[in-house]
Amino acid sequence: MSQPEDCRPHPFVTEEGDAVFDEAWQAQVLAMAESLISSSQISANDWSATLGAELRNADAAGAPDNSETYYKAALSALERLLLSDDHLTTTEITERKEGWEKAYLSTPHGQPVELKN
């Protein structure tokens, strides 16, 4: 799996030694959602309903009942909410993701990865 690309805390473990997050992006999804709720950019009810719908979709599609599925559902829910609230467009997300992918592929290993315009 991917390595954390920056200095965010790792490993993510609780006092009992269980993993809180398996990967940095999982924590970042929840952090973005909570930040957007705190600043009233999205509503807590919409977040809960959309996440619930994504979890049901994943379950219906036969996805394994584990944390990977949960966090992928959370990411899809966040994207869906940001699109439906007109904060972002599909094109913006697609192009930005491609931009990051190119940035990673063109950056020598060990160098900081920066998005190029």
């Binding site: 799996m1 991917s2 390595q3 690309e5 990967e23 940095a24 992006w25 970042q28 999804v29 973005m32 957007l36 966090y71 992928k72 990411l75 966040l78 994207e79 940001l82 904060h87 972002l88 913006e92 997300i93 930005r96 993701k97 931009g99 990051w100 992918e101 990673y104 592929l105 290993h109 998005l115």
Partner: peptide, 21 residues
């Protein structure tokens, strides 16, 4: 070798969202 340090699809989607937001 190039792909070995390419983040997962989910990690790239999160990078995209965070930088846009």
């Amino acid at each position: 070798a190039l792909h070995s340090h390419l983040p997962s699809d989910s990690a790239l989607r999160v990078k995209a969202l965070e930088s846009l937001l």
